[in-house]
Design a protein around this nucleic acid. Structure first.
Lengths: 236, 236
DNA sequence: TGATGTGAAGCGGTTCACAGCC
DNA sequence: GGCTGTGAACCGCTTCACATCA
C-alpha cells in the first residue's frame, strides 16, 4: 500500500536469485527453502527472505518456495517478460562486441541498431549478428522508428557526455554507459555505468599491497582490502 | 601504525579522484581544496578528506592540496606506477575487444596474451593490437614465461569456474571476471566480477516500474528504485 | 582567515532471532 | 516440526560540525 523504495542492491540480488532458480529448474528441483538456496549458492537466507518480502509473500511456511512459481514471479518483477530493444552508440570494438554478446538475448534484450559518426561504418552490417550501423545524426528518428528503449554508450570518454545528452533528448529512459566518465545524472533516467578503469585500478591497488591474508570479493559490495600499515608515519 | 582495512568503496573513489586530478592537471591548475574538487565533480568534500586521510596527511590547512603532488601520491597508492601484465582467457569477441581496449594502457596494464582452446585461434595474432593467442593448455607455463600478473576471464559462464581454477593454480592473484557466474571466492585472490546481466536486468526492473520521479544513478552504490505500490495486496 | 583532519551523529543495509503460520 | 516473514540489534559507510593548524 505505502510507497516503498527498493534498493538497487536488492534488485541486483533478485537477478542472482533468478539465475539460481534457473539452475534449480534445470535440475528439475521443484521446491526450495531460503536456507537451501543460501547454502547452495553462498547467500544469506535472511536476506533472501527479506528481499522477496518487499514484493509479496511468495513462500509457504514449513515448505519453502515453489521454484517454477518464484522464477516466474522474479521474471515479472524484473520486467524480463517483455522485450527490450537496444541501440548501441559507438560501433568500435567494444560496441561491436556488445552487439554480439549473447547475454543480451538471454535477458530478453534485442540489439536493434548500432550508431556511429564514421562514414566508413554507416550503412554497413557489423559483427556476427550483422547489425546495421546507423548515422548518429539520425539517432532520435531511428529510436522512434525502431522503438528503441535502452541505449548502450560505448564511445570514448570525451564524447560520452555529448552522446548522453542526445540520448536523453530522444526520450530514452535507460542507459548503460561504458565510458569512464561520470555523466551528469538526470531525473527519471536510469543510468548505469560500468567503469572498467575503476575495476582495473582496484586490482592494481590490491596487488600493490604487501600481501596479507583475506581479500576475496566477487560482488560489487562490502569488499575490504587489507592495509597492513598506515602510511601516515612513513610519509609525514 | 595499526593495521587498517580500507573499504573498496574508498579505493574506487581514489580512482575517481585521480581522474579528476588528471583533468585539473590538463587545465594547468596547481592547487585545489576538497570543497573545490567536490563542487566541480559532484562529490562530497568530507568524504574526499576522509578517504585521503586513511593514507596520510596530504593537504595543507588554509590552502588545500597540491594537484601534481596528490596525483603522484594517488598513482602510487593505487599501484599505477608499476606495469601490470595482463592475460585474457577467451579470444571471442569480448576477449578481443578487451585486448584492444585503450583503457588498459592508460592504467599501465599491458595486454600480453590471449588464451583459447580453439585450434583455429591458437597461434594467430588477433585484433588491432595483434596479440598472440596461446593454447589455454599451456596457460601456467605462459603465465610464468611472460610474467603475467592479472588475468581477465572472458569465456562463457559454463566454463568460468573451471578457468578460474586453472588461473588460481597458476598463481595469479588478481582476476577480472566477465562471466555471469558467481565464482567460488578464494583467500588471497582479488576477484572482481563485472556482471553485465545484472546491470541489464537492473535497467529492465527500472523500465518495468510505473514511471515516477527520481531515479538517476551513476555509481555502483546507494541507488534507489522507486516502488510506487507494494504488490502484497495485489498478489496475495 | 580558510581549509584540513576527525570524533560524533546519522543513515541504510545486513544479520539475528523469534513469533506466526502451514 | 519446519520454514517464512519481520521487528530489533548490529554494523559500516557517509555526512556533519568543529577543533586544529598553516
Amino acid at each position: 500500500m505505502k510507497a516503498e523504495k527498493i534498493s538497487e542492491l536488492t534488485t541486483n540480488r533478485l537477478s542472482v536469485y533468478l539465475r539460481c532458480l534457473n539452475a534449480l529448474t534445470a535440475e528439475n528441483i521443484k521446491t526450495v527453502s531460503s536456507e537451501g538456496l543460501a547454502n547452495r549458492f553462498h547467500l544469506n537466507s535472511a536476506q533472501i527472505r527479506k528481499d522477496l518480502a518487499y514484493f509479496g509473500e511468495f513462500g509457504v511456511r514449513g515448505v519453502g518456495y515453489y521454484v517454477e512459481e518464484l522464477r516466474n514471479t522474479l521474471t515479472n518483477i524484473l520486467g524480463l517478460d517483455k522485450e527490450h530493444r537496444v541501440g548501441i552508440v559507438g560501433a568500435g570494438r567494444l560496441g561491436t562486441a556488445l552487439a554480439d554478446y549473447y547475454g543480451f538475448k538471454r535477458s530478453n534484450f534485442n540489439v536493434i541498431a548500432l550508431f556511429d559518426t564514421s562514414k566508413e561504418k554507416i550503412g554497413r552490417h557489423i559483427g556476427n549478428t550483422k547489425i546495421l550501423v546507423y548515422n548518429f545524426a539520425d539517432f532520435a528518428e531511428t529510436v522512434r522508428q525502431e522503438n528503441i528503449d535502452v541505449v548502450v554508450i560505448a564511445v570514448p570518454a570525451e564524447f560520452a557526455q555529448e552522446v548522453y545528452g542526445e540520448v536523453i533528448k530522444a526520450g530514452i529512459k535507460a542507459v548503460l554507459n561504458f565510458a569512464p566518465s561520470s555523466l551528469q545524472a538526470h531525473n527519471n533516467i536510469k543510468l548505469k555505468t560500468v567503469d572498467l578503469t575503476i575495476s582495473l585500478e582496484s586490482l592494481s591497488y590490491f596487488l600493490a599491497q604487501p600481501q596479507s591474508e583475506n581479500s576475496a570479493s566477487s560482488g560489487n559490495n562490502n569488499a575490504k582490502h587489507e592495509q597492513p600499515l598506515s602510511r601516515k608515519k612513513q610519509l609525514k
